[in-house]
């Protein structure tokens, strides 16, 4: 019975959503309407092209430092048991990362383009 309900509710919801979409859907745009706007001009090459994602290096750095934080949670537990040895290991790890930051800084990664 429960399983039947579980299947029935999403099914009804899906049918309702589809019906609603059909009722409310606006007419399909004609080709002249769907043309990209450039003040009366037109595209001369295909719109499939690769863009430079300018925030890419910054996004990559963010992920790198998020991973660093992830390592620090289990390390906090280990630190209680291991003491100064664990602290030194983490210090080495953070130093290597800090060198990475200095290098990225020098290369202008933090300068927004």
């Amino acid at each position: 019975m429960d399983l039947a309900n579980l299947l029935l509710i999403p099914l009804i919801a899906a049918v309702l959503i589809l019906a609603l979409e059909k009722c409310l859907r606006r007419n399909h745009s004609s080709y002249p309407q769907a043309r990209p706007y450039s003040g009366g001009g037109d595209l001369s090459s295909h719109a499939w092209c690769r863009f430079h994602v300018r925030y890419y290096p910054m996004a990559l750095l963010l992920i790198a430092f998020e991973m660093e934080m992830m390592f620090m949670y289990p390390w906090a537990v280990v630190y209680v048991a291991e003491g100064i040895k664990a602290l030194m290991e983490m210090g080495m790890f953070l130093t290597i990362l800090a060198l990475g930051i200095v290098y990225a800084w020098r290369e202008g990664v933090f300068r927004w383009q």
């Binding site: 990209p36 450039s38 595209l43 001369s44 090459s45 863009f51 430079h52």
Partner: peptide, 16 residues
């Protein structure tokens, strides 16, 4: 920055 990517060509105006 020297990263070669695709160039999009189009005409713009006269009512932009």
């Amino acid at each position: 920055d020297g990263l070669m990517l695709d160039a999009l060509e189009f005409s713009v105006g006269p009512f932009y």
